[in-house]
Design a protein around this nucleic acid. Structure first.
Length: 584
RNA sequence: CGGGACGUAGCGCAGCUUGGUAGCGCACCUCGCUUGGGACGAGGGGGUCGCAGGUUCAAAUCCUGUCGUCCCGACCA
């Protein structure tokens, strides 16, 4: 490709509306152009990157025994009503009506469609298992799309779905996919960590995420990992052993104390001169459920003062669709008190769901809100709970966020935390979709059973963006060779110099003939412009043809290295051809 | 959803306070000159100032509404 014809316009400045470095660089270097909030055109350079990522995925998925198909982007509501997700999915599901007034939606994922596709085609146990995938657009109407391709509304995803007759077969495929994923990301130049995670809107029992760990980037997930053993998990799923499992406030008797305007855990801790973990904190949430009779249900979480509520865990624990912190007026309405003094005391008749976090277990003689303004109770114990407080025995669940430095439940060592970008995920779905949709196969005895399913996703656009987050410097992108839009750029320093141009063209042709995807920067611009663009765009190799041709030398530079080498044209060409030919 | 800010040429911005019909840099086109890290000179094209109302002789500027965009918060008892 001649640079003079390449459809790209690099910008002198970073765009004003970008925050994440991958977003800034992809816009400035001319890879993407925004159409709407969370919707981008993938310009030719980007499209080449996406094609490469997709092809790596295809090769590895096919090698792992999966088959590619392609399913519709616009889907009928009927399918989603069958699976139950039409009610559950919420506003992220982009809904619309066609001209006949039929309800439709844009595909945020394809479990429903693939289930309906397989049902009726592979109906015998003899044909299973099968794994089908496609690479296609997805649309999720995110609350707040941001960070360019890292969290857009429209994006490209590879999603695969497997169908089985038994759990063992599912587990084997799950492992097979985990291995394939590790290979795929490695070939994209990315090291990933497979971490335990919450299943979210996709559902199912077991799931893992593939994270690109990068502390400096706009990763949106916190990943906890054990410093000793293999344990690692997304913060929405991570568990830990507390450092102090039994905490004692040391108060000798039960007493109601005036605590005027002492509201926060920090203030209480100072007021009573006790540690935060000797206070039982109360947080009131408002939850909504699939059952519309239970709309805006108050849920009171009691948790040890030094811990925080992990909202995904809470949603799972109470089986809610959405939760949010209660507003001041809601606290007054449901508990008849003010924030800062809330608890479950005397609330048995108030129709508030009360849940204790596991961290509250083992607390003794602690401080708790009196559930009356400006009063707390000291020296409280679980044995003090009466029928006026709770109708039933306290219910416990793990709904707290792990803190760095707490201990691994597997081996007891300390847990650490890092940021991660989720580029892939794998789920064991079981019969979550096949059962409600009545998608069944026939076994050897002629009986029908719902398919046992797994699903496996990779964010193609996000993977590319993650690579930019991970590999860049102050001058621009540093693509891994495997997914770079072009392998090399040839720069004649002075396009008016016939000898330089002739040699540059010669080198360019030899590269092309050697299987290298090369760009010849034949533009009339000065060398500085070409160098700046080459760095910004991130070509892995650069061959510069300048004055040194009188000595029979050109300049060879790898984007990821500082070093400039003076070599013969043939050596430069052969080096690039050799490196490129080592790619699969 | 709450809070803050911003919409003026492809990109980055000024002009608005104090209304008089739009400007700068980059990019683009022409000519000249230049050619190893975003040169220089001269000339040129491109914007109904997000949109809709209102006030006014006159609105990018003032008022109202609306749409869009970005950031922050959604971490608290």
């Amino acid at each position: 490709m001649k640079a003079s014809k390449l459809f790209v316009q690099t910008l002198r400045d970073f765009p004003n509306d970008a925050e994440a470095i991958s977003h800034k660089l992809l816009v400035r270097a001319g890879y993407i152009k925004k159409l709407t909030n969370g919707g981008y055109s993938y310009l030719p350079l980007m499209q080449r990157v996406l094609t490469k990522v997709s092809n790596i995925i295809r090769q590895e998925m096919n090698a792992a025994g999966a088959q590619e198909l392609l399913m519709p982007f616009v889907q009928p509501a009927e399918l989603w009503q069958k699976s139950g997700r039409w009610q559950v999915y919420g506003k992220e599901l982009m809904r619309m009506k066609d001209r006949h007034d039929n309800e439709m939606c844009l595909a945020p994922t394809h479990e429903e469609v693939i289930t309906s596709v397989v049902d009726g085609i592979f109906t015998s146990y003899k044909q299973l298992p099968v794994n089908l995938y496609h690479i296609q657009l997805k649309f999720r109407d995110e609350i707040r799309p941001r960070f360019g391709l890292l969290r857009s509304r429209e994006f490209i995803m590879k999603d695969a779905y497997s169908f089985h007759t038994n759990e063992e077969s599912l587990h084997a495929e799950y492992k097979n996919m985990a291995d394939a994923y590790t290979k795929i990301f490695k070939r994209c130049g990315l090291e990933t960590k497979m971490v335990q995670s919450d299943s979210g809107a996709i559902g199912g029992s077991v799931s893992h995420e593939f994270m690109v760990l990068a502390d400096t980037c706009a990763g949106e997930n916190d990943v906890f990992y054990c410093e000793k053993c293999n344990y690692s998990a997304n913060s929405n799923h991570a568990v830990s052993k507390l450092n102090e499992e039994h905490t004692d406030g040391g108060f000798s008797k039960l007493e109601t104390v005036d605590t005027p305007n002492v509201r926060t855990i920090n203030e209480l801790s100072k007021f009573f001169n006790i540690k935060e973990n000797c206070i039982l904190k109360a947080v009131l949430y408002i939850a909504s459920f699939a059952d519309e009779d239970k709309a805006d249900m108050p849920v009171l979480v009691m948790i040890r003062g030094d811990k925080e509520v992990e909202e995904t865990k809470l949603m799972n624990a109470v089986n809610a669709l959405e939760i949010r912190i209660a507003a001041d007026d809601e606290v007054l309405k449901h508990l008849n008190t003010e924030k800062g003094f809330i608890s479950f005391l005397g609330a048995a008749d108030k129709n508030v769901m009360v849940l204790f976090d596991d961290s509250a277990k083992g607390m003794k003689n602690f401080v708790i809100g009196a559930n009356k303004p400006h009063k707390h109770i000291t020296g409280y114990n679980f044995s003090d709970i009466t029928e006026n407080d709770l109708k039933n025995k306290p219910e416990f669940a793990d709904v707290s966020l792990v803190k760095k430095g707490e201990n691994c439940t597997e081996c007891g060592a300390s847990l650490n935390v890092t940021r991660g970008i989720e580029v892939g995920n794998i789920f064991q779905l079981g019969t979550k979709y096949s059962k409600p949709m009545n998608a069944v196969y026939t076994d050897e005895n002629g009986k029908t059973h719902p398919y046992i399913m797994g699903c496996y996703g990779i964010g193609v656009t996000r993977t590319a963006a993650a690579a930019v987050e991970k590999y860049h410097d102050e001058n621009g992108i540093i693509w891994p060779l495997e997914i770079a839009p072009y392998h090399a750029v040839v720069i004649p320093v002075n396009s008016n110099d016939e000898a330089q141009m002739a040699l540059a063209e010669d080198i360019y042709k030899k590269l092309i003939n050697g299987g290298v995807e090369a760009v010849l920067d034949d533009r009339a611009d000065r060398a500085g412009v070409k160098f700046k663009d080459a760095d910004l765009i991130g070509y892995p190799f650069r061959i510069t043809v300048g004055k040194t041709i009188t000595e029979g030398l050109v300049e060879f530079k790898e984007r990821k290295q500082m070093e400039l080498l003076k070599v013969s044209p043939d050596e430069a060409v052969n080096t690039v051809i050799e490196k490129v030919s080592m790619l699969k």
